[in-house]
Simulated scan of single mutants.
Amino acid sequence: MSNRINQFINKKFLIYAFGIFFCYSYYGILQEKITRAKYGIKREVFTYSMSLVFVQCIINTLFALVQIFVVNRKSEGQVHDTTTHFFYGFSALSYLTAMVSSNRALQHVSYPTQVIAKSCKPIPVMIIGVFYARKRYSILKYFFVFMIVLGVGIFMYNPNKTSGAPIQQSRTFIGELLLLLSLTCDGFTGAFQDRMKSEHGTKPGHMMLWMNAWSSLILFVALTITGELWQFIDFVNRFPFVISFILQFSAMSAIGQLFIFLTITSFGPLACSLITTTRKFFTVLFSVILFGNSLSNQQWLGSGLVFLGLSLDMFYGKQPPIKKPLL
C-alpha cells in the first residue's frame, strides 16, 4: 500500500515539475520571440512592455477567478479574505513595475543576462527584510547570497566594455538599470506579501486575483495616459500573428503559477525552489541554443556560481529569519 502511495506521489511530483518546466520554458521562449524579433519590412521592434504585462495580468486575473470560485470552492469551500486593498494596491504597483522593467530590459540586454540578473531576487528581499522588517539571517545565508552576487558580477563584467560603441554601451547601461529597478521592486513586493501572509493569512488564489486585478487597473490608466494602448492596438493590427504569441505567453504564465501553487501545497517550498532554479538554468541553455545568445567562458562561470549559490541556499539556507527585538 505504501509503495503505491509513493508511486502516486512521485508521479504527481513529476507531473508538477514537468508543468513548471514546460510552462516557464515556453514562456521564456515566447517572451524573447515577442520582444526581440524584427517585424515587417521596416524591421520594427516590439516596444510595448506595459501592454504585454497588461494582457498577462488580465489573463492571470481571469485564471485566479476560476481557481477561487470553481476549484477552491469545491475542495475547501469559500474562504473570506481580510487583506486590505491598501496592501494589494501597493504590492501590485511594485509587482507590475518589476515586470515592466524586466520586459523592457530585453530591448537592451540579452535574455540570459535578464535571467541571471533576476536570479538575484533573494538579495533585495533579504536587504529589505533586514532594514524594514528587522529580520536576522544566518551566516550561511549571507555566504550564499554573496556567492550569487559574485556570480552575477562575473557574468556582467566585461573588461572590453569601454572599447565598445558608445551607443551600445548606453543601451547596455540602460538595460542594467532597468534590471536593478526590477530587482528593487521585487524586494518591496516580497515585503508586502510577507505582511499580507503574517497579518491576514492571505491565500495564494486571493493574492493572485487581487494583485493582478489592481495591476490591470493601474496599467490601463497608464496605457491610456501615455497613449501606448492605441499604439499597441495599431501594432497588433499590422502584425496580427503576434496576438497568438501574446495569448500563449499569458496562458503559460497563469498555468505555470498554478503548478507552482500545487507544488508548494503538495511537496513544500524547497521542492518548488529546486524545480524553478533548475528551470532557470535550462531557460538560459535554451536561449543560447535557439536564439544564438552565446556566452563566454567567463559568463558560464558566473552562471554556474549563481545557480550553485541558489541551490545551496535551497538546501542549507532555508532556516526561517528571526525578527530583531525592538529596543
Rank of each mutant, 00 (worst) to 15 (best):
L180W: 12
L258S: 13
I15Q: 13
L312K: 04
K118Y: 07
F291D: 09
S216T: 15
I20G: 04
R171P: 06
R136E: 12
F286Y: 15
A17M: 13
N10Q: 09
L93W: 07
V145S: 09
R238C: 10
S296D: 08
N237V: 02
V236M: 11
F146A: 14
A117Y: 07
H200N: 07
L310H: 01
L52C: 06
T82P: 14
F8K: 09
T283G: 10
L140F: 15
T172C: 04
D234W: 02
P122L: 00
F232P: 03
E32D: 13
F155T: 00
F291Y: 15
T83M: 05
F46L: 07
P159L: 03
F241Q: 10
S2D: 09
T83L: 06
Y316N: 08
C185V: 03
I225L: 14
L308N: 02
F282H: 04
N60V: 10
F143A: 14
L178C: 11
F54R: 00
M314P: 00
C23L: 04
N297D: 07
R4H: 12
F8A: 11
F146N: 07
Q231C: 06
T189G: 05
P159M: 02
P269Q: 00
S273R: 01
N237Q: 06
P240Q: 00
F144V: 01
F87L: 07
G164M: 15
N293E: 14
V109R: 08
I148A: 00
S25W: 10
Y132S: 06
Q231I: 01
V66A: 14
A92M: 08
V79S: 04
V152I: 11
G175S: 10
Q299F: 12
C185A: 15
V152N: 02
S266E: 12
K324Q: 14
K135V: 00
K141N: 06
T172L: 11
V55F: 11
G268N: 09
S215W: 05
A117H: 02
L301H: 00
